[in-house]
């Protein structure tokens, strides 16, 4: 993760920035006055940072979790792949229209076993964000994902999808090439894949854009990710006809991992380092890696037919209604 002063802070993380500044000032003082021992002050301040991170974590509002899921320093798909796996071979293109840079994928080895990794990729700087289209895939992105899933299925390799998208791209060409059909096709085909499929929401899980690579035997969420049918901003804009109700929308939508797990709409939550995944990339990746290895092993014990039946039945149970 970036070190101070390259670190970026959200509004509610500002107290931490202040602590970092205090450390810097103390260090300066220390260099000017070599006879005085400032080490204990620095240790104290570093301790205060950890305390503040804990404090923030304990009092996160749903909207703040949404902010964390979009933290500019948050690890993205390729970061996880690089940290968790060896031998990553990135594959490109949907064999039809083009290569979608917002959707990446390829074979890699997890704990020595080959698996297919697929996910939306966000950019890490302004130029890169444009190249990655802010993690908003076009139809060819979904079709590329499906091509790679088929490839994995053919060679009996498990599939891991890492979801991080503010939504499928709402562009003119996306409509011409059938954004709706592409997502629908993926949902349908993923339901029937013969190999184990694990989906993890690592950041933003917005709507059909997320579900387009989100049908699996196990669907997991990172602690500070969100997953629902619409972004809080767009929800606010449609239901309240104003952009100003996004915090309220985030609360009403109950889009955080704790709620999603409680509703049994996801199968589990992967913990993040205190204060969020951006504080420690290695620990974040290690947490996820452990869960993935364990889950793949569990799923491989089940026959493909049974896995598919269980997958369909799991989604079939979702929903609540009244019946007179």
């Amino acid at each position: 993760m970036p070190q101070y002063p390259n670190r970026q802070f959200l509004d509610f993380e500002e107290p931490i920035r202040n602590l970092y500044e205090q450390i810097e000032q103390t260090k300066k003082l220390a260099s000017k006055n070599p006879k005085i021992d400032y080490d204990s002050t620095i240790t104290q301040l570093e301790g205060a940072i950890v305390e503040k991170r804990k404090d923030i974590t304990e009092h996160l509002t749903p909207w703040q979790r949404v902010q964390l899921s979009r933290h500019p320093d948050r690890p993205y798909t390729l970061k996880y792949i690089n940290k968790m796996t060896t031998n990553f071979l990135e594959l490109f293109g949907d064999r039809n229209v083009k290569d979608d840079k917002a959707m990446i994928g390829g074979f890699a080895q997890l704990d020595g076993h080959t698996a297919m990794f697929i996910g939306q990729q966000k950019g890490i700087n302004t130029k890169n964000r444009q190249l990655r289209n802010f993690g908003m895939a076009n139809p060819e992105g979904y079709r590329k994902a499906l091509r790679l899933m088929r490839l994995a299925e053919k060679f009996n390799k498990p599939i891991v999808t890492l979801i991080d998208t503010p939504g499928a791209y709402p562009g003119m060409e996306a409509e011409e090439r059938g954004q709706g059909e592409a997502i629908a096709r993926n949902i349908y085909e993923m339901m029937r894949l013969k190999v184990p499929v694990i989906c993890v929401i690592i950041g933003e899980g917005a709507s059909g854009g997320a579900l387009g690579i989100g049908v699996g035997d196990r669907v997991l969420m990172l602690e500070n990710s969100w997953y629902t049918v619409i972004s809080p901003e767009n929800c606010s804009s449609i239901l309240w006809r104003s952009w100003s109700m996004k915090e309220k929308a985030a609360e009403e939508l109950k889009l955080t991992s704790d709620y999603m797990s409680k509703f049994k709409l996801v199968d589990g939550v992967v913990p993040e380092p205190i204060g969020g995944a951006h504080w420690d990339y290695d620990a974040s990746a290690e947490n996820l890696k452990k869960v993935l290895i364990k889950t793949i092993k569990e799923l491989e014990k089940i026959s493909p037919e049974k896995r598919i039946t269980q997958r369909i039945e799991k989604f079939e149970k979702m929903g609540q209604w009244n019946e007179a």
Partner: peptide, 23 residues
């Protein structure tokens, strides 16, 4: 489209119905 007042429950109907269509 989706019914926002049912949030993720609404989203999951897309998966639920697609699974049934495969049957």
């Amino acid at each position: 489209g989706a019914r926002m007042m049912e949030s993720a429950f609404s989203l999951m109907q897309m998966a639920k119905t697609s699974g049934k269509l495969s049957q």
